[in-house]
Computed example of a mutant assay.
Amino acid sequence: MTRPDWHTARVAAHAAGANAPEPVTLPLSDVDGCTLAEPLRTRTALPAFVTASVDGYAVRGPGPWRLAGRVLAGQVPVASQPGTAVEIATGAVVPPGAEQIVRVEDATRGPDGTVDGRPRRDTPEWRTPGEEAAEGEELLPAGTPVTPGVVGIAAQCGHDTLLVRRPPRATVLVFGDELVTSGVPGRGHVRDSLGPQLPGWLRRIGAVPTVPAPLEPVADTLAAHVDAIATAAGTAEIVCTTGGTMRGPVDHLHAALSELGAEYVVNTVAVRPGFPVLLARLPGGRFVAGLPGNPQSAVIGLLTVVWPLVAGLTGRPLPRLHRVRTGAPVPGRGDDTHLALARIELDGLAYPLPHNGSAMLRGLARADGFLVVPPGSEARAGDSLELLAFPLHPGERP
């Protein structure tokens, strides 16, 4: 069986999510964590009128000026007259005809009601209409993750609702009779480290984890695998399984997928660590991501196929790879892509980390991402490599 290379697998997983669910219109209070399904355009110029950017006096002509009223934010001023000063608050409409604003801290008021002082700058201290954006201007493209900042600018430019794609729901199933979910494992058993950590990774790649707590391992039988996957797919668009991706005596995932009528999108990837990982589509459009049982390999599998899939399902672009310089040599892995745990140090260089075995998590806990060493190559100190940087925040831009 020909294994797709790592880059090809990412592209295939992203394309699998192209038939995303229809977007929905939601109020601004409910859109954080979603994805824009259409460009965000202003419904008004920003700002819509000449707006004072400081507290002070809007003046016309040379000083001293006769005080001729006050205008606060939300009020409509009358036109400024020659020789007058109008007290003005930050954010208020500048009176038509005003030529400058003298800051309140730079002005003095005489007992006869006059105002004197000098503008601090040659250019008026106000914002002009359209200075930030013209009416109808595109501020953000479709596919942009909705953050609190996006919600704020949407409200500022007149939107009450947004057309968005909701984040897909994703759940986790852990396979293995050898797993225990609490305490120190006894002889022959292993503490499950994937059930506790994968929900956090899912949040950071833009999915909504729907993982029961506690998460109990699925029994090592075909019937239990089929039932668990079918049940999970009833409540989540993506089912992430851990373990069972080989074809050993207790590896039932492939047989379960066959019984459920699944079609493979990706079936193993030429990557180390991370072998073997798979992505399959169930009848009805739900997905199963088969992640290896070794913890670091499982995280690599999730970032290889699930992150691009989530991006596809939400209309986001394929997660980007960044270019970095290496601070030390990085070995290759023969014909496979090598994803090497790395940390960016203060000198700006990426250094491979120790404790990077497939079953190890010590290096993963300190890493900033994976260096991508192409098949059939190795890197020397100072070489340029792609970096699959870890997503740090829920819904982070890919």
Rank of each mutant, 00 (worst) to 15 (best):
V93L: 06
Q81I: 05
T42H: 06
T25G: 07
R70T: 14
V86W: 01
A58Y: 02
A18D: 06
T35L: 02
A45P: 00
L72E: 15
P21V: 05
P23Y: 11
A73V: 13
L40A: 07
A18W: 02
T25E: 15
V59L: 08
T51I: 00
L26N: 05
R10Y: 04
T25M: 11
P95C: 11
Q75R: 14
S80E: 08
R41L: 10
G56V: 02
Y57Q: 03
A12P: 00
Q75G: 13
R66Y: 02
R66E: 10
V54L: 12
A48H: 08
V54I: 14
T44G: 03
S29P: 04
P27C: 10
G63V: 09
A48D: 13
E38S: 14
A18P: 00
R43W: 02
F49M: 07
V11N: 04
L26G: 03
A58H: 06
V24A: 14
T44N: 07
A85F: 07
I88G: 02
D30W: 09
I101K: 01
I101R: 02
P39A: 11
T84N: 07
A98P: 01
G56I: 01
Q75H: 14
T42D: 04
P95V: 09
L67W: 04
V78N: 12
S80G: 13
D30L: 13
I88A: 02
A48L: 06
G74E: 10
Q81W: 08
E99K: 09
E87Q: 15
G56C: 08
A18N: 02
G97H: 07
D32T: 14
L72Q: 15
T35K: 00
V31L: 02
A13K: 00
A79V: 07
H14P: 01
R70G: 04
T90I: 09
Q100D: 15
T25S: 15
P23K: 12
V102R: 01
T90Q: 13
S80Y: 03
G83I: 04
R10G: 00
P39S: 12
G56P: 06
S29D: 13
P47E: 05
T44E: 13
P47I: 08
H7A: 15
G69A: 10
P62V: 09
G97S: 09
G69I: 09
P27S: 12
Q81Y: 05
C34P: 03
L72S: 15
G91I: 04
V86Q: 03
A12V: 00
V24G: 07
V86Y: 01
H7P: 05
L28R: 07
R10I: 00
V104W: 05
G97I: 03
V50C: 11
A68W: 03
V31W: 01
E22Y: 06
P82H: 07
A68H: 13
A15I: 00
S29R: 15
S29Q: 13
V50M: 10
A98T: 06
V94S: 01
A12H: 03
R103S: 13
R41D: 04
R103V: 10
L72Y: 12
A16G: 06
G91D: 05
G56N: 04
S29L: 11
Y57T: 02
P82D: 04
T25K: 13
R103W: 08
E99G: 13
